[in-house]
């Protein structure tokens, strides 16, 4: 079953490409919120793909590996949201080029 090995490895490779792209985003983006966009979330697809690829390499473990992937998929947005929310409440500003901030506007109106 050499073919399955190669497919699994290729899926893993595709995943690690997304992991790298997400990390490039974290390094390049101008402010915290954009870094979260590129970083924490562009990497979730990378995470999903690498885990699936490794699951294909080891089919008998696939259910458990997919469970880890689902866990990441469920918890990641919750912690990202909490962090972004806290950061905005703590007054971490948006980058200079940002178009608008409806939340800041509404807070001041209150």
């Amino acid at each position: 079953m050499v073919a399955w090995d190669v497919i699994g490895a290729l899926v893993t490779l595709a995943g690690s490409v997304f992991l790298l792209l997400g990390a490039i985003g974290v390094a390049r983006m101008p402010d915290l919120y954009n870094r979260m966009q590129a970083g924490t979330k562009a990497t979730t697809l990378g995470n999903l793909l690498t885990l699936t690829g490794l699951g294909i390499l080891m089919p008998s473990w696939l259910p458990k590996i997919l469970l880890i992937a689902v866990f990441v998929l469920v918890t990641n947005p919750i912690s990202s949201h909490a962090l972004a929310r806290a950061a905005h409440a703590a007054g971490i500003p948006l980058a200079k080029g940002s178009v608008k901030d409806a939340l800041d506007h509404d807070r001041e109106a209150r």
Binding site: T12, T40, T50
Partner: peptide, 25 residues
């Protein structure tokens, strides 16, 4: 800011989890 560092740590976690799974495999 500290929040930026938290994001960086989160990204590292997302790389390390499949890394550990690879180690297991």
């Amino acid at each position: 800011t500290a929040a930026d560092r938290a994001v960086a740590l989160d990204v590292m976690t997302l790389v390390f989890v499949p890394g550990m799974v690879a180690l297991a495999v």
